[in-house]
Amino acid sequence: MSALVELSGLEKTYATRTGDVHALSAVDLDISKGEFVAIVGPSGCGKTTLLKILAGLEDHTAGTASIGGHPIRTGNGDVGMVFQKATLLPWQDIAANVLLPLSLRRRPTSQDREKAAALLRMTDLEGFARKRPHELSGGMQQRAAICRALVHKPSLLLMDEPFGALDAMTRDSLNVEVNRIWRETGTTAVLITHSISEAVFLAERIFVMSARPGRIVDEITVPFDRERSLDLLGDPEFAALTSRIRTHFEVTHA
């Protein structure tokens, strides 16, 4: 498989008033087309910085970063983003919110609207296109945010702790949903999370990061099928994988 995302020797240093902060160090990472990759690590390990570099929101200090063979450029429309909060525009209905990535570039066509409607169907939000965000539950808002991130068919779906603000049960059902969306759309997905079990549940490959400077300390291939169900959470192999990842944090924090 060809690599869609290629990061090599990536470095990021922030200048702050109290001196330089070395946020990322020698990050090498390839992501294949259609792959689901999770990046786990403790807070402050630079995983959000890494995601922002992938999104083109931040520059890197050294090394190379490319998507589809081209250096990452802000706003080229090649990434879709999901944040911890749904960040829907409260003054627009769900349909208009989902269409935002397209409507910022051009007047949405009828095909665009059909695409948005199809995504809302896929996430069981069919009847909510005309509703305002505040009329939806937190989980439904986050599903709408996922639709918005996919409407312009980006080559890369970036998710930054997408369910961190939701309760555990909503989280579980959304994880099942994300797995289904990923399989149905064939998108390439990068998930940033500090939840080890979420990473194991969703990803095909997991990169484990350590803090200060943020670097990749382990890479794990998850052996499960593409289709995942909540039964997996009780699987001994699932438990073995999560505890293997957890050891890293015990070691790095000792």
Partner: peptide, 13 residues
């Protein structure tokens, strides 16, 4: 919200 501004920037606003 910073994330909203980031969302707009990512989408080339």
């Amino acid at each position: 919200d910073r994330d909203l501004i980031n969302l707009f920037r990512v989408n080339g606003a």
